[in-house]
């Protein structure tokens, strides 16, 4: 279980995450929100790239800042950037070697690249990869340490329809294997299709968390999402 307790992240003049409290105990959880809502900030705090101004995150009862936690997670940043002159295979090996006991057999990396569909480009330099291939490589490196928890920031961005379908199938396979997935997205259709629960974030605040079905209450997800955000804006005004 992942628990966020009064998580706040403030920059000089802006509060990016505002007293965010939430417990998540489902296989696939989606953070849904507009651009700049605070989704990426939350994910960066979870994986230790940013320090919160206040509040805590615990995972299975331990603080997320504990070093052991990083061994259990995989993270894919939004619009991943790579070492352009490395090959996909080299990049996976490098990422794996950063884990104690890492440096698996070549077959492990080959399996991962096959899983995400870029095995054929394994020996090409990353600078020759398309945006979709980069997304897939970003996904593969998140799996390199066989993580229990996966944090994926806009994992389906830049993929073509077939690519999106394939990646969603990979996520559902990972769910069957018992892994927990957190994903950030602003694509409502994906959320509806694969998430067990969602958290609606707007201006750093959690407006809703729970099942997609309950949230929609018979209406299209997009309509409900706009309604909730507009209601929040009206309340503020």
């Amino acid at each position: 279980m992942v628990e966020f307790s009064h998580l706040t992240k403030a920059y000089k003049k802006r509060v990016a995450v505002d007293d965010f409290t939430l417990s998540v105990d489902v296989p696939i959880f989606g953070f849904l929100g507009q651009n700049g809502a605070g989704k990426t900030t939350i994910m960066k705090i979870i994986v230790g790239l940013l320090a919160p101004t206040s509040g805590t995150i615990t995972i299975d009862g331990s603080l997320a800042t504990h070093p052991i936690f990083k061994k259990k997670i995989g993270y894919m940043p939004e619009t991943p950037y790579f070492y352009e002159r490395m090959t996909g295979m080299e990049f996976l090996r490098f990422c794996d070697e950063l884990f104690e006991g890492g440096g698996n057999a070549q077959a492990h990396y080959e399996d991962l690249l096959k899983k995400v569909g870029i095995y054929g480009a394994r020996d090409y330099e990353i600078r020759t990869y398309s945006k979709g291939m980069r997304q897939r490589l970003g996904f593969a490196q998140a799996l390199v340490n066989d993580p229990e928890y996966l944090f994926l920031d806009e994992p389906l961005d830049g993929l073509d329809p077939i690519g999106r379908r394939e990646m969603k199938e990979v996520m559902l396979d990972l769910k069957k294997e018992g892994r927990r997935i957190f994903l950030n997205t602003h694509i409502l259709y994906d959320v509806e299709e694969i998430c067990d629960e969602v958290g609606i974030i707007h201006q750093g605040k959690l407006l809703y968390s729970g099942s997609v079905k309950e949230f929609c209450a018979g209406k299209p997800l997009e309509e409900r999402f706009v309604e909730v955000v507009e209601a929040h804006e009206a309340q503020k005004a």
């Binding site: 990083k70 993270y75 991943p80």
Partner: peptide, 13 residues
């Protein structure tokens, strides 16, 4: 600057 460091620092580094 190119955020490659995200991959590295999200691991036990």
């Amino acid at each position: 600057d190119r955020k490659v460091v995200y991959f590295i620092l999200s691991k036990p580094v």
